[in-house]
Amino acid sequence: MEQVLFIVWRESVEALLVVGILYTWLRAAPQGKRGLAYLWGGVAAGAALAVALALVLLGISSWLSDEGQEWFQGIMSLAACALVVQMVIWMKKHGRTLKSELEGGARTSVANDNWWGLFLLVAIAVAREGSETVVFLYGTVSAGEGGGDMFKLALAGVGGFIAALLTFWLLQLGGKLITWRRFFRVTEILLLLLAGALLVGGLDRLISLDVVPAIVDPIWDTSALLSDSTGLGKILADFAGYRAMPALISVLVWVAYWILVWALLRWAGAKPAPAPSAARSAP
């Protein structure tokens, strides 16, 4: 439930940011108002593509046997983990130039009177965010114990979207407490923690299928101190991959994941080296 609400909230804010940037630019551009219909058409097309992907994933899952579903859900959890990390790294590298890149694409479309180019730009941007949301949600639900109450999951999704609208409005006010930089910094950490939970959840399924050796199972038992099925332990299990009785392979992979994430963040955040200055000619 909490994971679904968080994912829909975070991804919806990012989609609203993309649409908001283009909408503001089109309203300010002399010929931009002609492109508003293409903007909203692109939003609808992108959302439709995301819904189509969701139906495909549900369809594939329903065709598979019980063991096949275990395989599929385990793989989707791992794919969702990889997608979360990729998205965080991409935003870390391109977040500062996102506005100029989007406006540059829109400006090119308007200059060439290519409104379908604007439509495609918006559709791809929205479909990307929507598809990420679909994969994240499927991977998150798959990594848990069953699908849960679909009504509650849908309610969490609606709540996440409403929260995203409120968050976007607050961020647009440009307050000192909530800024875009702080928003992305905090949610970046939460997303990486969630990706770690998806990784452990997918690995649990592969261990149960005897695809991945547990090596030692369990390597310790902290259930008496902090159970992973209730209270704080359940929250840590859902958002960080905590296990009271983990297999050794899960611990090793989890540690390797954070080392890799640290290295990727360092690489994405590194500023490009300045061009070497021309050597001074000898007197």
Results as ranks from 00 to 15, higher is better:
Asp204Leu: 13
Leu83Lys: 02
Ser61Glu: 14
Ala244Ser: 12
Tyr38Ser: 06
Ser109Arg: 03
Ile21Phe: 01
Phe119Val: 04
Val186Gln: 02
Tyr138Lys: 01
Tyr257His: 14
Ser277Gln: 15
Leu102Pro: 08
Val85Asn: 07
Leu153Pro: 07
Gln31Ser: 13
Trp262Gly: 14
Tyr38Thr: 02
Gly241Cys: 10
Glu188Ile: 02
Ile219Cys: 07
Gly146Phe: 02
Trp115Thr: 00
Ala224His: 12
Arg10Ile: 02
Leu236Gly: 04
Leu137Val: 13
Leu198Gly: 00
Arg205Lys: 15
Asp113Ala: 14
Ala163Phe: 06
Ala44Phe: 11
Lys271Asp: 13
Leu177Met: 09
Trp63Thr: 10
Lys271Val: 14
Ser142Val: 01
Gly147Lys: 03
Tyr138Met: 02
Lys176Tyr: 02
Phe239Arg: 12
Ala237Pro: 05
Pro218Cys: 04
Ala50Lys: 06
Ala52Thr: 11
Leu137Tyr: 11
Leu209His: 04
Tyr138Trp: 05
Ser65Glu: 04
Phe72Ala: 06
Pro246Asp: 13
Glu129Trp: 05
Leu121Ser: 10
Asn114Ile: 05
Glu103Cys: 08
Leu198Ser: 00
Val56Ala: 12
Trp267Lys: 15
Gly175Lys: 08
Val126Arg: 01
Trp220Ala: 09
Thr97Tyr: 03
Trp258Lys: 04
Phe6Glu: 01
Phe119Gly: 02
Thr179Leu: 12
Gly233Ile: 05
Ala278Gly: 03
Leu171Pro: 03
Glu132Asp: 10
Gly160Cys: 04
Gly130Asp: 07
Ile178Asn: 01
Ala278Leu: 10
Val158Asn: 12
Trp25Val: 03
Lys99Met: 03
Ile75Val: 13
Leu236Thr: 04
Met76Tyr: 01
Ala197Glu: 03
Ile162Leu: 15
Leu102Cys: 06
Ile60Ser: 02
Arg34Thr: 13
Ser131Gln: 05
Lys271Ala: 15
Leu26Arg: 02
Gln172Trp: 01
Val84Pro: 01
Gly148Ala: 06
Arg107Val: 04
Gly231Asp: 12
Ile249Asn: 09
Glu101Val: 08
Pro272Gln: 09
Phe136Ala: 08
Leu53Trp: 05
Ala197Trp: 00
Gln31Thr: 12
Ile162Cys: 13
Pro283Lys: 11
Ile178Leu: 12
Leu236Ser: 06
Val85Met: 10
Val200Pro: 00
Gly146Ala: 05
Ile7Asp: 01
Ala52Phe: 11
Leu194Trp: 09
Thr140Ser: 15
Phe151Ser: 15
Ile60Lys: 01
Ile75Thr: 11
Leu26Tyr: 04
Gly231Trp: 09
Ala47Gly: 11
